[in-house]
Deep mutational scan, measured.
Amino acid sequence: MEVRTIKVFTTVDNINLHTQVVDMSMTYGQQFGPTYLDGADVTKIKPHNSHEGKTFYVLPNDDTLRVEAFEYYHTTDPSFLGRYMSALNHTKKWKYPQVNGLTSIKWADNNCYLATALLTLQQIELKFNPPALQDAYYRARAGEAANFCALILAYCNKTVGELGDVRETMSYLFQHANLDSCKRVLNVVCKTCGQQQTTLKGVEAVMYMGTLSYEQFKKGVQIPCTCGKQATKYLVQQESPFVMMSAPPAQYELKHGTFTCASEYTGNYQCGHYKHITSKETLYCIDGALLTKSSEYKGPITDVFYKENSYTTTIK
């Protein structure tokens, strides 16, 4: 009895394709271990004539594949690729409408935090270190965002349907971005203890939790000093293409032309909904596939993004 075979390709990165001759009487799992086709788990399936010449994702289970996976995804987590594939199996079914010149995501599976993050990423200057993220990001900007969303979920250790947080998501993504040249110098002034300067680099240099107003941050924000008295913390120097200011959701007025974009969060910790506000020729609110415009805006804002380049204080 002759062994019926077909020729397929296996890959971990969709760049390096490895030619395989597979036995049609055995499952993919018996031949390769966990195997995925377009995100779908085909591990328990036997090869079919229609699979001839198709590319299958496999887990990096030998040295060659491990090197290829690390170079593309910059992670050695053995569960990463499987999590990416199972997320992709959902995100490829989502709709990605162009809204006001940006790629958004039609609401499904509690994905409003991903839509808000995706919209924000198209408006701030950011370059990702893992080629996987950078490639998928370019495709997302062009309207094909399924891979990018699935990668975000995998890097953030999230599953489809789980509630997510924009600030946490951005923080994970910033860790995989090139923020080497970003720098922030802060000064804390206390009447009792004097003053202390701190220099922050990388992710810490672009994120701040405690106030939404970048102007206020430049002037000074009140913080408790270690001595128990009130101290003032203010920005001395900022070198970065953008800054992200966050605070627990509270009524906040966004003035046209003073910011790049913002995240609105309605609801409580267990259950809520994100919308995205962007400042173009007027203010726009993007909620999944829905767009509304207004000249002014007041609502429960939790993150505001500002364009920056270089700032030095005039406070002496």
Rank of each mutant, 00 (worst) to 15 (best):
Y252T: 11
G53M: 14
P130E: 03
F148W: 03
P97D: 02
Y36F: 13
F242V: 06
T43V: 04
A115M: 15
L186T: 11
H90V: 11
N110L: 02
Q216D: 15
L126S: 03
K127V: 09
G194S: 01
K255G: 04
E71D: 12
T232M: 11
T5Y: 08
P224K: 15
K201G: 07
S294T: 14
T75K: 07
L200V: 12
T232H: 06
Q31R: 11
Q196R: 10
Q270A: 06
Q237E: 12
A289N: 11
E239D: 11
G272R: 09
Q216V: 09
D63Y: 07
K158C: 01
Y311H: 12
V185Y: 06
L133E: 01
M24N: 11
S246E: 10
A250G: 12
A145V: 02
Y269C: 14
T10W: 06
K158L: 06
L81S: 03
N111P: 05
T116I: 07
A177T: 04
Q216K: 09
T211N: 12
A250C: 06
E52Y: 10
L179H: 07
L88A: 05
Q123L: 04
E68D: 09
Y306G: 06
N61Q: 08
N309C: 12
Q122D: 01
C112K: 05
L121Q: 00
L291R: 07
I15N: 15
G164A: 11
I105Y: 00
N268R: 14
Y155S: 00
I277V: 09
K93L: 12
K255W: 05
E296G: 12
Y113M: 04
K219Y: 07
K307Y: 11
G210M: 05
R66S: 10
L126H: 02
P131M: 02
L186W: 09
R167N: 12
T312K: 13
V203W: 14
T43A: 13
N268L: 07
G164P: 02
L283I: 11
A146T: 02
T199L: 08
V206T: 05
C156D: 01
M1I: 09
P60E: 06
V304C: 06
S79E: 14
K293G: 07
D77N: 04
Y36M: 05
E308L: 14
V160T: 04
S86V: 13
M209C: 11
N178E: 06
G220W: 05
D109G: 05
S295E: 10
T199P: 05
Y113H: 05
S86K: 13
K92H: 10
G288V: 01
D303E: 05
H273A: 06
S171E: 09
L119M: 06
T198G: 04
T5V: 10
A117V: 15
S171R: 13
T312I: 15
H51R: 00
E144D: 12
Q31A: 13
C261D: 04
I286D: 04
L65S: 13
N187I: 08
V8R: 01
V67C: 09
H74L: 06
C271D: 15
V21I: 11
G288C: 00
I6K: 06
D77E: 10
L65H: 10
T10A: 09
E71W: 04
P34C: 02
T120R: 05
Y252C: 05
L119G: 04
T120I: 13
N14L: 07
Q31Y: 13
A250S: 15
V304E: 07
F174N: 02
S263D: 15
T226Q: 12
E253G: 05
T192C: 14
C112G: 15
D287E: 10
A247K: 02
T10G: 05
G29A: 08
S25L: 15
E168L: 09
D165H: 14
L37K: 12
S79D: 14
Q98Y: 06
K201D: 06
T198F: 11
D303L: 04
P47H: 02
K191E: 12
Y137K: 01
A205K: 03
A69C: 10
C271H: 14
L291I: 15
S213R: 05
L65I: 10
T314N: 13
A177S: 13
A108M: 07
E253I: 15
E264P: 03
M24S: 13
H90I: 09
T292F: 14
F128N: 01
R83K: 15
Y113F: 09
N14V: 05
M244H: 13
A247W: 04
T192S: 12
D165N: 15
C285L: 08
D287H: 01
V3A: 11
I223A: 14
D303H: 04
S104W: 00
A140L: 11
Y72K: 14
C227I: 03
N111F: 05
Q175D: 13
T169L: 12
G161V: 02
H176D: 01
F259I: 07
T313I: 08
E281A: 03
Y252L: 09
C271G: 13
A115Q: 01
P224L: 13
G29R: 01
A262H: 07
K255D: 03
D287S: 07
E215W: 07
S279M: 05
T19D: 08
A150N: 01
P248M: 07
A40M: 13
E125G: 06
H273G: 06
E162V: 02
E308C: 14
E253A: 13
A140F: 07
H273I: 00
N309S: 12
I45S: 10
D77H: 06
L254H: 07
L88S: 01
E125V: 04
V160L: 01
Y234L: 08
K229R: 13
S213V: 14
V22L: 08
K201S: 14
G53S: 11
G210Q: 08
L163V: 15
T313F: 08
L200Q: 14
Q196G: 07
I105S: 05
M245Q: 05
K158T: 05
K229M: 12
G101A: 02
A136Q: 08
L212Y: 08
R139A: 14
K127E: 12
S50Q: 15
E281F: 02
L212W: 05
